[in-house]
Simulated scan of single mutants.
Amino acid sequence: MSTPTRLWDISPPVHEGAPVFPGDTPYQQRWAATISPGCPVNVSDIRMSPHVGAHADAPLHYDPTGAAIGAVDLTPFLGPCRVIHAIGCGPLVEWAHIAHAVDALPARVLVRTYERAPIDRWDGALAAYAPATIERLAALGVRLVGIDTASIDPADSKTLDSHQVIRRLDLRVLENLVLDDVPEGDYELIALPLKLTTADASPVRAVLRAL
């Protein structure tokens, strides 16, 4: 009997009270129908920002003429990836923080910055990518970058320099991952966005599978 392939669930829990970027719509749920003598099912009504929890940004998020998430190619969100640890790196993930693990990179890179991700609170001091780091990753063939914080840019940024690098180079991004229990190394990433035809982002159920 073969051993089952190990999966790492790298998505934070989504529920009322889950942290959101200040100003975003938090997760809210009510019951539109409940099981009763006259109703055979429970049906919920959910309202939330598509940036709650693990999510994929669409070009539309940072480019007024960019594609909605339902129109982007799914290829970057599925395939070999590398998890690189830059725990406690400070406000920006600089090249020096990840240079130890960039040989023969796959097309997807996820960076862990937290020892334990703050899944129960907003962290305004989150670590983000330095724009130059994304530039250098792209030059090595990376097509998707991910991070275990709420944004690839600092929380107070108004210029979104790293998002603009993503726009210019046509890369894809995953944010709000939970990499606490994932050893540094190579995996298969599965993090498909929903086919939301007019949305600026989509929740994903991001998992890693052992190669």
Rank of each mutant, 00 (worst) to 15 (best):
Pro91Lys: 06
Gly146Phe: 07
Glu115Tyr: 01
Tyr27Ser: 00
Leu192Gln: 13
His51Met: 10
Glu188Gln: 15
Glu16Asp: 13
Pro131Lys: 04
Leu208Met: 07
Ala104Glu: 13
Leu144Phe: 04
Arg136Leu: 14
His15Gly: 02
Asp63Val: 07
Ala101Pro: 08
Glu16Arg: 10
Ala18Val: 06
Leu74Gln: 02
Asp9Ala: 00
Pro183Arg: 05
Pro118Asp: 02
Thr34Cys: 02
Ile147Asp: 08
Thr149Asp: 06
Ala155Gly: 08
Pro50Val: 13
Asp148Val: 10
Gln28Glu: 14
Gly70Met: 07
Pro193Leu: 14
Leu177Ile: 11
Arg143Met: 13
Leu194Tyr: 14
Leu177Cys: 12
Val41Ser: 10
Ala68Met: 09
Gly38Cys: 02
Leu192Ala: 15
Ser157Asn: 07
Ile134Tyr: 10
Glu94Trp: 00
Thr34Val: 13
Ile10Thr: 05
Trp8Ile: 00
Asp24Ala: 13
Pro183Asp: 03
Ala199Asn: 11
Pro154Trp: 10
Trp31Met: 08
Arg136Met: 14
Leu144Trp: 01
Glu175Asp: 04
Thr133Met: 02
Ser157Glu: 08
Ala68Asn: 14
Leu137Glu: 09
Phe77Ile: 00
Cys39Thr: 14
Val52Asn: 02
Pro40Ile: 09
Gly79Thr: 11
Arg108Gln: 02
Pro154Gly: 15
Asn176Phe: 15
Cys39Gly: 03
Ala99Cys: 07
Thr133Arg: 07
Asp57Asn: 11
Pro131His: 03
Phe77Asn: 00
Ala191Arg: 02
Tyr114Phe: 08
Ala71Leu: 15
Ile98Cys: 04
Ala128Ser: 14
Ala130Phe: 05
Ala139Asn: 14
Asp9Phe: 05
Thr5Asp: 10
Arg82Trp: 04
Ser11Ile: 01
Val43Lys: 12
Arg121Gly: 00
Glu175Met: 13
Leu189Asn: 10
Pro106Leu: 01
Val93Trp: 01
Pro91Thr: 06
Glu175Tyr: 01
His15Phe: 12
Val41Phe: 15
Leu140Asn: 14
Asp180Gly: 08
Gly146Ser: 05
